[in-house]
Structures are given as C-alpha cells and as structure tokens.
Write a protein that binds this DNA or RNA. Structure first.
Lengths: 130, 130
DNA sequence: ACTTGCGTTGGAGTGCGCTCCAACTTCTAC
DNA sequence: GTAGAAGTTGGAGCGCACTCCAACGCAAGT
C-alpha cells in the first residue's frame, strides 16, 4: 500500500496557511499560544500540519477580527467552543451582540462618509472658484 | 462698557472641550503637541482657551479618526491645511482617497456581517433542535 | 488671604496586536 | 548523506494611540 501517515494527507504547513489566510506564521503561532486556535496536529518531527477544520475555524476568527472583535473577546468565544455543545446558547448571544455592534458601527461609518462627501464637495467648489 | 478680554468670550477650557468631544484633556494636549491641532490661544495665565474655529477643526479630525485615519495621515492633512489655500487640491485628493478606502471598508464589513448572520442562523437551528 | 481645584509641562508608562530574534531541529531535494 | 530551506521554542521588542505622573502655577469662591 502506498498510503503514509493519516495526518499528512490533506494538511497544510504553517507557511501554506499563512499564504492562504494573509496571516504571518508568527501570528498563527501567536493565536495558537493565546488559545484562539486549538493545538494544531503535528508531523512526526513536531511541525504543525493544519487540517481543513482548522482552516474553517481560522476563517471564522478572521471574520470576527475584521469586524473589530478584540483578541480577548475571541479568546472568550474560543473557550466557549472548547466547552462543547452546552455553550451554543452563550456563543449565540455573544455573536448577536457582536453583530449588533457591527450594525451600529456601519451606520456611523456611513454617516461619517456622508459628512466627508460634503467636505469634498466644499473643496471642489473652492477649487472651481480659484 | 461691560466687555472683558477679547480672548475669553466665547471660548472653552480644556475640560469643557473634553466633555463636548469625548476626548480626554491629555489627548487634546497630545494632538496639539503632535501638530494635529494648531497652537490654541491662551489666557493671561497661560491656559488654553478653545475658540469656535478650533472646535470645528477638532470635529473634522474626529471624523477622520473615526473613519480609520491614522495620526500620521492626519498630521499630513493638518500640515497641508497650515500651508493655506494653495494646498486645497492636495487636500481634496487625500480626502477622496480616504473616502474611497472608507467605502471599500464599509462594503467588506457588510459582507462579513452577512456571513455572521448565517453563523447566527446556524446556531439558532442547533439550539432549536437540541 | 486662603483654599480647593483646574491647568501646565516634559517625560515615562501602558495595552494591544503583533513581529522579530537566536539557537536549534526537521524536512526536502539531490 | 548532505545542503539549504522551512519550522520550532521562549522571550524580547515594536508601533500606535493614548494615558498617567510629578511638580508646579493659575483661577475662583468665600
């Protein structure tokens, strides 16, 4: 049989994950150390091998991060996730709160955007007159 | 005549400005030291007295900050403003670029928001089934 | 006149989110 | 088997945007 270790098929090295996520290898290790990412499976020699499920979780984390969630809050979420099925209600609540803050933030950004548009119009008029 | 000093009418102390803007007095001084805010007028005893024009500029700065502009970029903008009328075209360009980045950022936040909504729906289904 | 509080300065310190480093091991290709 | 690239660890360092501090001077009410 030509098959090798169960771990090494369909897994990615840390630089491959870095390339796919935009995170640096250092940041990936930092997230793992901080408990945002569960301990990643290792090769025989002790190197990280990321599985598809790890990639899904990282993608979700990046969504939380890109919508302004702090590392401390992501730690709380990751901890609940490790607690298993019983924590789904709590996770739902956290996510709903985060979503509400995001909605509000988008609203404020849009309002500020309209104010900037006015300022831009003002400058355009000034330029036209000069 | 009942009038007093020219400076002290219609001006605000640093804590009054802090209360109105949400910035701390320390931050107001820091912004001034950093050149984001032009040197503020002083009372006879050397204390800052903010005029209406100062307040307008601070409000604009806060809009830039709240839409994600860094202090370094705000410094560039403030410097152009000090350069006077000749810099209006440059200021317009900076503002347009900032506006474009903001539009893109809002777009991405909205997309991430929709993805979070899906995750929330997923959790809701899990809870309903349990 | 006195007291209490507000404001001043220069500079040090903080929290966040990474980022870099040295010294070492493992992996890959030849 | 060997060279060179890639990965490992613990811990130090960094850039940003404030925030705090000590030691002092001014302001306002009684």
């Amino acid at each position: 049989m030509a098959s090798t270790q169960p771990l090494s098929a369909d897994t990615l090295t840390i630089t491959e994950v870095a390339a796919r996520t935009g995170l640096s290898p250092d940041t990936l290790r930092y997230y793992e150390k901080a408990g945002l990412i569960d301990p990643i499976g290792r090769s025989a020699g002790g190197q990280r091998r990321y599985a598809a499920a790890d990639m899904d979780w990282i993608a979700f984390l990046l969504r939380l991060r890109d919508t302004g969630m702090s590392i401390a809050d992501m730690q709380r979420f990751a901890e609940l996730r490790r607690a298993g099925n019983a924590s789904v209600a709590d996770r739902l609540e956290l996510l709903r709160e985060h979503r509400a803050r995001l909605t509000e933030r988008i609203r404020r950004l849009q309002a500020n955007g309209r104010a900037l548009d006015e300022k831009i119009t003002h400058y355009e008029k000034q330029l036209g007159e000069s």
